[in-house]
Design a protein around this nucleic acid. Structure first.
Lengths: 151, 151
DNA sequence: CTACAACTTCAAGTTCACTTGAAGTCAAGA
DNA sequence: TCTTGACTTCAAGTGAACTTGAAGTTGTAG
């Protein structure tokens, strides 16, 4: 099997045919045509589709993916160097994202740990807001109003 | 300052007023009204908004956030237990996401490392596809066709 | 050679998460 | 009191990423 039909590519990549045609209009993948005008994809298209999906995972829009792919040469097979540039920039983005998620995770853990009795220090629930207007003391999540009456 | 106007909430949360009204239609936040029908938000709303944004970061849709918030009691201030349930499920999701990103990062690193001379083992570019139809030897990324003519 | 699944294009529709605009009301300072 | 900026609702618009439908064509197995 030299070339893939759009249906085969869809099956193998797990991406709907309609999405593949859509990707093609966006210049993300390319195809040859049969005499009867049907698309035929080289094996490389399968990797290309995976690349697109991977990039989406990383948080890139299709436009950004197209742009990134645009940095790869059209006239020749990409070299290791070509690829390294692309890959490095994505990895950077990935690293940043991982860092952010870790931070969020830690905040959540703190919130569980603290039982929300020390909301002052809770990053998630006090982002940029000048809190500490009521002095210290117990606070409740999602319903600040329940201040213990100074019994 | 007991209650916040929508503008103040917007400034403090960094979320546009239009978005806040939109969140309200989705049941994500609530407000009281003045005699003149203007919204007034309790401080809790600020945390609530942050919660929504945090959840979006984790990859939840607004619908899912609404659902999650729905598991919190409406009639009383959420307790530590209420919160723990919610927080744990989100943290789980966060963990899964972090794991996925790590995997993706590693794949990218491998791809850089291998110089794409051993695409057979490259997870990103061979997901679920049975490759290895051409035997071993050099392969090129994004353009498989360039097989060295057996010089 | 025929049947039929798989393909083609093109326009329009969908969902999500908002934003924008119009037309009018409210709140607070000079 | 007047002015002005902040607010109100409601309808419509936006952009991303596709999907769906209609109407017609192609490829292949029987």
């Amino acid at each position: 099997m030299e070339l893939l039909t759009i249906g085969e590519l869809a099956d193998r990549s797990g991406v709907a045919t309609s999405a593949l045609r859509f990707y093609e209009t966006k210049g993300l993948i390319e195809s040859e045509r049969t005499n009867g005008n049907q698309r035929r994809y080289p094996r490389a298209a399968l990797r290309r589709v995976s690349l697109v999906r991977a990039a989406q995972e990383v948080g890139l829009s299709l436009g950004e993916v197209a742009e990134a792919l645009g940095t790869l040469p059209h006239d020749r097979t990409p070299t290791k160097n070509d690829w390294e540039k692309l890959s490095r920039s994505w990895r950077k983005r990935l690293d940043r994202q991982i860092t952010e998620l870790h931070a969020l995770r830690n905040d959540l853990t703190d919130c569980i740990g603290c039982g929300c009795l020390s909301l002052k220090s809770c990053a998630i629930f006090n982002p940029g807001d000048a809190i500490a207007e009521r002095g210290s003391g117990p606070r409740y999540l999602l319903g600040d109003e329940h201040i213990q009456p100074t019994a």
